[in-house]
Write a protein that binds this DNA or RNA. Sequence first.
DNA 1: AATGAATGAGTTTTCATTCAT
DNA 2: GATGAATGAAAACTCATTCAT
Lengths: 188, 188, 188, 188
Amino acid sequence: MPESKKEQIRQAAITVIAREGFHAATTDKIASEAGVAVGTIYNYFSNKEDILQYIFQVEYEKRAAFLAELSQKELGTIAKIRAMLEMHFTKVQENPNLVKVILAENRFGRRQKENGLLGLLEQIIRTGIARKDIRPCHASIIATILFGAIEAIMARYLAAGETKSDATALSAAVEEIIGLISRGLATG
Amino acid sequence: MPESKKEQIRQAAITVIAREGFHAATTDKIASEAGVAVGTIYNYFSNKEDILQYIFQVEYEKRAAFLAELSQKELGTIAKIRAMLEMHFTKVQENPNLVKVILAENRFGRRQKENGLLGLLEQIIRTGIARKDIRPCHASIIATILFGAIEAIMARYLAAGETKSDATALSAAVEEIIGLISRGLATG
Amino acid sequence: MPESKKEQIRQAAITVIAREGFHAATTDKIASEAGVAVGTIYNYFSNKEDILQYIFQVEYEKRAAFLAELSQKELGTIAKIRAMLEMHFTKVQENPNLVKVILAENRFGRRQKENGLLGLLEQIIRTGIARKDIRPCHASIIATILFGAIEAIMARYLAAGETKSDATALSAAVEEIIGLISRGLATG
Amino acid sequence: MPESKKEQIRQAAITVIAREGFHAATTDKIASEAGVAVGTIYNYFSNKEDILQYIFQVEYEKRAAFLAELSQKELGTIAKIRAMLEMHFTKVQENPNLVKVILAENRFGRRQKENGLLGLLEQIIRTGIARKDIRPCHASIIATILFGAIEAIMARYLAAGETKSDATALSAAVEEIIGLISRGLATG
DNA sequence: AATGAATGAGTTTTCATTCAT
DNA sequence: GATGAATGAAAACTCATTCAT
């Protein structure tokens, strides 16, 4: 039972787009990486852009599910934020290609989806304020800052070549962000 | 004798790339926006990518000069960071197209330059630690977080359409970031 | 199933290049002459120059096969040279376009192949000397002279318009060259 | 008293065309090699092709003058032919670039001029027949063969790189051609 | 006469997409 | 569903030629 054809193509596209960028990732290269014929791609996607959207969508859904679930957990707000950071930094180590694609091809036009994630994080923060886990603040600005920080750390990790600056750099980043947030948003 | 031809082309390219993205910004469109013939572009740039590099370079040099000068100023560390935030948020209001280009076309390959800026901010932070303006921390991680936060705020402002969410949103963001940093990195 | 697509394109290219020269033979014209789309050319050739190289290669291989076979035949040296002349002069009558291309586009860079033919003729001459069919001489210079003579005669035939100066002119040329060679290289 | 501008341009064109071929020899490169501005070229030539025609014309006139004068000389026919060979082989050694241009860019369209030279050599041969210096033959075919042989020898010399195969190769070629002709066209 | 910046028509090449098998 | 040859629109880039200075 091999993976479904659609999944094969998604994986192949991630590999090729991460390596060459969306524009240089031709449908021929993707098909060849996936081990299918070009025509087959069009049985599953309506065009090349659609492959990318699908990559974003699958990823968005995973993260949204994670955040939604996190939101429900019996955890302090700072602990929730820490869990979110760890999830992202684990992901960039496990699937650097995917994150490369997400970061590099994140045009304004494709950002819509992310607003959903932003809303979920915002909700976690808002709840934290209500519970007095953290001081009052603009939840949506804080959420934006957090996502910006996460992206920047991941980009830096990927740009460094993913080797030397290994897990340590990312752990340190978690602690710095948590240190900043926990003091910076402390109540009282 | 209005502006130099090279400057005309740079401006036109910013306009077209901001509107359509680098890939869809054809040399014909850029030339026509600049009011010159296609061939003229190639008297000033060796290829289309070179135009983009030049846009990044001009911008990088401006920011680097700003940060270098800021570094020397008789100002507390938090005040320096505030000045940097204000500079960026003023820029995105004054020249949203330019910032759109910088944010949207910032491929990994083109990030090199930014490392220079990162280093300058890092230096400001390191000095702040030495002076005990702020507590000990990983300067380079904090610098990365700050740039990530700035980018995310600017991207959000631009995505919102630059109209309703006007200056107020950006001012609020300055205060949130400063609030976070000043408490989060407070000494003692 | 007429001819292979690659062969269709080769034929069309010969026609167009003979008529307009390599430089003026645009890929559009070649495609249209071949009855295919421009893109199809690039499914069989990596670029325009490659079409020309292929034309030379196919022709070179035919001539090399002819000369190699001739070399083995039970024939006097002069008879072999006569056969070679007749082959060339028949070819120019049967396929003047092809010969036009070969003569007109034979840049220095593309001459490599011809050296192979030169070597084969040289071998025939060297054998002739050993057998005392002809007197000692610089085989490679004689071979060069012969090819030069053949090319010049063919060029003249083609320049004349291929009509009036028909087969007769070429037959006369065979006799003159053979007359010259047989006396000029006679033994004793 | 430097050379005339037109001559400067002719020389520069020969250098550049020999090195890069007519097509790749841009007017910019020629102007730069000549030490003038592109515009200046158009004060002396009506277009790029015209430069090449001029190169051919100057050369044609020199050779025609040489042949016309030779024709009048008190010399045996074979000696005249030898003089012609020596003239050509000296020229290729003294000005290989010029000969490269003449050989490489000798399209059918530009051959007209050469017919004049052919006629002059033909005349020398015809006179030789009348004088019984040589046996009856098709003067025009023999002339064509001779020019073909000369071109082939020169091309070979140039292709070899003009260094190792120096003057010796060319002297040997003179002797081979003369040997062939003097025996091959001997009277009686 | 000399200059060289500006021009824009013209070319090669690419590649997403289609569709007959 | 799968295939991959064929398609042709689209784009970057070149360079001979012009002309205002």
